[in-house]
Design a protein around this nucleic acid. Structure first.
Lengths: 345, 345
DNA sequence: CTGAAAGCGCTAACAC
DNA sequence: GTGTTAGCGCTTTCAG
């Protein structure tokens, strides 16, 4: 005795609607799918029957024959805390969600472990549960996700990495910003305002975005003839940012500026700086990255590199939808970054 | 020409596996479903064929015959920012996700508007896309969600409200903590430490948890013969907590303690207190609620009422799974709260 | 223990 | 315009 069958007559089928309306199943199907070749009268009768029975088409059956599920997966290789803790994801999801609201597709969230999606995720993605997938926050260790694009339409948020740090394959689709350039913008600003001992707090080394930002910081420094030795690695969390700031301050007493690869980490760094009595920006200037709400939340308004995160989500969803519609969207879409000047630098 | 059919031989079917293994489709099906009555040899042959073809069963087909989708919906009547901004949700989702990882079910996230789920969500839930639903953060204005339990197995996170503030129906399933009692614990602590002008910052008035916490604060005050006039309403966001704190301080100059209905709001309140030069806990003691990472993030460690949020997620998922398995779980599960003493009170 | 056959609910030619 | 006829890929009696 399952609850579903205890007292319910079961959801009505197309067949029952057909019987009630006195037509064939094919006709009911045509009405449901808004086929043009149905006479108005018949259509009205069928619609009445549908309403009376409160009929809703069975998706499984439809999927089976249509070979489409009308749903797409959002694959997030992060634990729930990092996913929820970073406003970056909130914006991405909001964008995706907004774009999908205008379509017939629904979103399925798949939280999976950072560097080894479970067998379950694999089966889910490959088992025909979804027509396509959106992958955010891709880590390099993940071979399955790196190659998933070959079996399913996939759009990455951020440049995907191939195995062993190789650049993504040219057949991949992704939406990104020019992380290197964004970092260059932020770092140049620090240089222009007279800073000379400029450090950086990076993101995890297995993520392309983190690597690119570090490279941008380095490039800007080198082009100005400055040293790029002041590096500490974070993990895109507030705690990680704080720890990296401690490390940087301990190792480089002369530090007068930090380019931090995310606002969240910058927020952690600001806490450490305050704790050590180093004033911002007088003693140490700080530039963040993301322009998330963490940038404007604390006592010190953060100068930061803005990226159009929500737009990225929209673009990702849009690209996948195009792919599913059989169109040929661009493989790479780079959105612009912009330096937002506030108080910290 | 859809992308899926361009060059792919198509995903292998059970039939192909059967052919390769030299057995019937029924036998392959038995192997897949771990039926006991298959000889070891045959099983090995079939498994080899499955591996060779990289076969993954088609869910739609399976759902069609099994009359089950093996997926459950997580309905969140909040915009993405509140959902992502509050660690409470992260913990709930992590718990749900953890529990579901051990099952065959997958999670489908449905973000919907606070007080009126879209027609799309309605159709999704009722269209047989999921076998059951988990609803978190239920608002009273939402009649559809309030009655959804009648058409689909549903488990609520937090006591659901019926229409117009009536208590949820006895047939509802939900997992909650005793919010009133938790608030009583927190408030009594404030009283015990000598505070007399104790205010509260509440959550939104259309949420049961918020109402219950307010009631607990009031009950504790009244049993001690203290006034319950110092109330300001927040919305479970950091900004809302800050605004409510301003209001409270402006209206009650004698305020010497605040019981805040969430750590996130308490974090906002702490900012205001600091801005006005009121020291915590010397001038104003603060007790939060949730014991989320916001409690220990800032300079002042927050005394707070802890609730086993992740456990709640686990319990929710577990209850729904039981329901789907035809068992008869408890309708109401109340998990314990605990006062965590830190520096703020 | 294994195979044959009959659908699950729907759509899509193909006739009329 | 509308009905008839096949399946989509899988599970499940029912024989053997």
């Amino acid at each position: 005795m399952t609850p579903a069958t205890v007292d319910s007559p079961g959801r009505p089928t197309l067949e029952e609607v057909a019987r009630l309306a006195g037509v064939s199943r094919a006709t009911v199907s045509r009405v449901i799918n808004a086929s043009p070749k149905v006479s108005p009268e018949v259509q009205a009768v069928v619609e009445a029957a549908i309403a009376e029975l409160n009929y809703v088409p069975n998706r499984a059956a439809r999927s089976l024959v249509a070979r489409a599920t009308m749903s797409i997966a959002l694959v997030v290789p992060e634990d729930a805390h990092r996913f929820f803790g970073d406003p970056y994801f909130a914006d991405i999801v909001q964008g995706i969600s907004d774009r999908l609201d205008d379509s017939d597709y629904v979103l399925n969230l798949q939280l999976t472990h950072p560097s080894s999606p479970s067998e379950k995720t694999r089966r889910y993605l490959l088992g025909g549960n979804v027509d396509g997938a959106l992958v955010v926050s891709h880590h390099s260790g993940d071979h399955f996700l790196a190659s998933i694009g070959q079996s399913l339409p996939v759009v990455f948020g951020g440049r995907p990495m191939g195995a062993a740090g190789t650049p993504g394959r040219p057949t991949d689709y992704y939406v990104d910003v020019d992380n290197r350039l964004g970092a260059v913008q932020g770092t140049r600003h620090l240089i222009a305002s007279g800073r000379r001992a400029i450090g950086t707090i990076t993101g995890p080394r297995d993520m392309p975005a983190a690597l690119d930002r570090e490279q941008g910081w380095r490039d800007a420094l080198l082009e100005a003839g400055l040293s790029d030795e002041r590096v500490a690695h974070g993990d895109f969390t507030e705690e990680g940012g704080a720890a990296a700031a401690e490390e940087l301050l301990d190792r480089h007493r002369d530090l007068d500026a930090i380019f931090v690869a995310s606002d969240l980490m910058a927020s952690g760094a600001l806490g450490i700086l305050a704790g050590r009595g180093r004033s911002v920006p007088a003693d140490v200037a700080v530039v963040g990255y993301d322009n998330s709400r963490y940038a404007t939340r604390g006592p010190i308004q953060l100068t930061t590199v803005a990226q159009p995160t929500r737009q990225m989500g929209i673009a990702m969803a849009d690209t996948l939808l195009r792919l599913l519609a059989g169109e040929q969207p661009q493989h790479v879409q780079l959105l612009p970054t912009e330096l937002i000047l506030r108080d910290s630098a």
